[in-house]
Design a protein around this nucleic acid. Structure first.
Length: 307
DNA sequence: AAGACGAAAGTGGTTGA
DNA sequence: TCAACAACTTTCGTCTT
């Protein structure tokens, strides 16, 4: 472990931290707090099958990254301030080179530079892991190369790319959250998201309700026990085919509501609904279905009798 | 008084002719 | 392109705690 790496939960001081590398999240098992969700994935993105391939795969030099407009490989010819101290021919030669370099950076590159700055802004606002940011940058780059940005605002395509990247990495954010972070209309993001994924042939798995549980539970300050119970409920719900066709956030919210009830950490439907970005009515409907299909009634009655 | 519940009408998106 | 449709929302009245 590196110096300064989080070992204790800042909320409750617990040392029971659960690390989820794929999502880039560290979750405190005691209080459910998401301690750090911007951790860097130190793993390799490939697997080695024998020593031969592992030799070829070894990396040297600075990492290549899609979050720089030129994948981090370009050369900048100085700053304006560099010309002081240069005289006459030196100076004009410098300016000429600089101008020339400016010209060869095509419209695409300039667009990318701007867009990636925006992408970083939104991504850091949402505290997205680096891996998602990279993926989004890759998607955006492809979109620009295919000319999919034409007729759409750059920001909306950035938001759409981020949304797609989140889904693919199973660390979903809701359209509402993306919308708030990027100040783009929710529908607009949804539209460009669908368009871009279709045009680029990107397949996105339908999002899983339990992917939302950790984040919602943390916002609601529910303990880890309640959280894992909610995941159990969701598993059972999926087996009972209660999840298909329904909005994943609504189901996740309902499962959290029930499990909070069972564990005596009651939250109002309103509170859960606000965090999950659905209405109370939706929670009620899902809640009702959950009670009907899974025999949770006994457990709830038990709790009620205790009082 | 606040929260939970349910009915009814409205909205935006998908699907299939 | 249009209509039917399912999921979800909004709104509002009633019941429960």
């Amino acid at each position: 472990m590196r110096e300064g790496f989080v070992k204790k939960c800042p909320e409750c001081g617990g040392i029971n931290l659960f690390i989820n590398k794929e999502k880039g999240e560290i979750i405190c098992k005691d209080c459910g707090l998401v301690v750090e969700d911007k951790m860097v994935d130190f793993g390799q993105e490939w697997r080695d099958f024998d020593s031969d391939t592992s030799q070829r795969h070894r990396r040297t030099g600075a990492p290549m990254t899609y979050t720089q407009f030129d994948q981090g490989l370009g050369t900048e010819i100085g700053q304006k301030s560099d010309i002081y101290g240069l005289g006459g021919p030196e100076r004009s030669r410098f300016l000429r080179l600089r101008k020339w370099q400016y010209r060869i950076s095509t419209a695409i590159e300039r667009n990318l530079k701007l867009a990636l700055a925006e992408l970083k802004r939104v991504s850091s606002y949402l505290k997205l892991p680096k891996s998602v940011e990279e993926e989004a940058a890759r998607i955006y780059t492809l979109a620009v190369q295919r000319g999919l940005v034409r007729g759409r605002s750059m920001e909306s395509v950035v938001a759409g790319a981020l949304y797609a990247a989140c889904r693919r990495h199973e660390v979903p954010r809701t359209l509402d959250e993306l919308s708030e972070a990027s100040s783009i209309d929710k529908k607009e993001i949804g539209r460009t998201y669908r368009f871009v994924t279709r045009e680029l042939g990107i397949t996105v798995l339908p999002s899983n309700p339990s992917d939302y549980v950790a984040r919602f539970a943390s916002s609601l300050k529910l303990n880890a026990e309640t959280q894992s119970k909610a995941v159990d409920i969701l598993d059972a719900a999926q087996k009972a085919e209660l999840t298909s066709g329904r909005g994943p956030t609504g189901i996740a919210a309902a499962a959290l509501y029930v499990s909070a009830l069972i564990h005596g950490e009651k939250r109002t439907q309103r509170e859960v609904a606000d965090i999950a970005g659905v209405t109370e009515v939706t929670i009620r409907n899902r809640y009702k279905e959950l009670l009907e299909e899974l025999d949770l009634e006994k457990e709830i009655k038990k709790i009620k009798k205790k009082r």
